[in-house]
Design a protein around this nucleic acid. Structure first.
Lengths: 215, 215
DNA sequence: AGATCATCTTGACGCCGTTCAGATAGCTGT
DNA sequence: ACAGCTATCTGAACGGCGTCAAGATGATCT
């Protein structure tokens, strides 16, 4: 591991063929995203940050889009992990959904630029990320949590509806929890976390019955 | 009204100073947005579509952003109108919220690129559009509808929470209702409209109690 | 008529995404 | 050890972008 450079941090001078550019590019992308915002996230800037020429990325990604997709996918993976933690930390089965929602929003609010990139990519192709059926995906966690919370797995339609509705709500909260006009209310409730919690618990699916109701 | 050109459609040759460029630019922007998608929405393309030089817009908008903001604002205005219609069409007071939600999502789904532009702008400045307190704004309509549906205007915190939660949910639904993985369910429910309706009615706030519950 | 002033055009700058021909070096088989 | 192969990276170039400064144009006012 001296300097042949398959490691992730080739502190030595570039091994000239750099070892592992694709990973380095994704990392550089995330760094730029967090440091300078999404407007600064150009292919050239990523290449610059990684220390290679502007054309180098094209040997690893066919597109700028494909590179950003890779960054987004990393985000989805981490979101899955964050949700898994929230799920595990739930005190009772009935609170699992709520805890997942809070964890989801917390991740989005702690990585706002990344989260926006993730959803931008998803909306562009009008679907969830491909690995949404992986065991540890955020999507899968919600599905399982619903069952855990008492939903009836036999009623597929009802299950799906609940899952989608829950997802839509937390997504909305994630995007708007920081809006300025909510600041008085946020303050009154003791900060963003309680505010988000109240918001989520306010929406039926999370805090209350998980079965159908059709009046 | 022969050709002096303060009208909105100067069918005659450009009155050379064009009459009303700012409006024409916004219209051109919307046309491009719907026809060629958001990726094609460049300042130069808008100028081209309006038949002026690339620098001309700078005499009416300080920025590309400011132009797009104007397009977005037009969108918010129309969303307000769409919601007003949905609200008026509600059969019972208890169904007002639900009808508003459906109208909201319908507008977003019928103008997807415009809606995305609107929300992009809103998220960028982390707040609703400035005219959110206008009498006919979408935001205001939700507030009034909540009261109409039986919410207690005295409990300000509860009111705000319900309003925000409802908004977050419809926004989420608006952005994801068209996702591909939901297609089987959408079909099974008879198309997008019933699907959206079910989703919205699924989420407490819209179909059920509007008062607090705190367990 | 002449002056004023908002409006529009021309031309330029630097940055962007992307491509392509060529340089570089690790790998393979001998 | 050497030659060739192939993956990887560089340099230079293209058109398009947002933006700006300088000049042209014409409506309006006196």
């Amino acid at each position: 591991m001296s300097e042949t450079g398959s490691a992730e941090t080739p502190t030595a001078a570039r091994p000239y063929h750099h070892g592992d550019l694709s990973r380095a590019l994704v990392a550089a992308g995330r760094r730029i995203l967090e440091a300078d915002g999404p407007a600064a996230l150009s292919l050239r800037a990523v290449a610059r940050e990684a220390g290679v020429s502007p054309a180098a990325p094209y040997h690893h990604f066919k597109d700028k889009v494909e590179l950003l997709d890779a960054v987004a996918e990393e985000g989805w993976h981490e979101l899955g992990e964050a949700i898994a933690k929230g799920r595990a930390a739930a005190p009772t089965p009935r609170s699992v959904m709520s805890e997942i929602g809070v964890a989801y929003v917390r991740f989005a609010r702690e990585n706002p630029a990344l989260y926006r990139l993730m959803y931008h990519a998803a909306c562009d192709r009008a679907m969830m990320p491909d690995h949404a059926k992986d065991d540890n995906s955020a999507w899968r966690h919600v599905e399982e949590a619903l069952i855990e919370a008492g939903a009836d797995p036999a009623d597929e339609q009802e299950m799906k509806l609940a899952q989608i509705a829950a997802w839509c709500t937390v997504h909305g909260v994630a995007e708007m929890a920081g809006f300025k006009e909510f600041e008085p209310l946020r303050e009154a409730m003791g900060g963003e976390e309680p505010f988000v919690r109240a918001l989520i618990n306010h929406v039926g699916i999370f805090a209350r019955r998980t079965r159908a109701h059709h009046d």
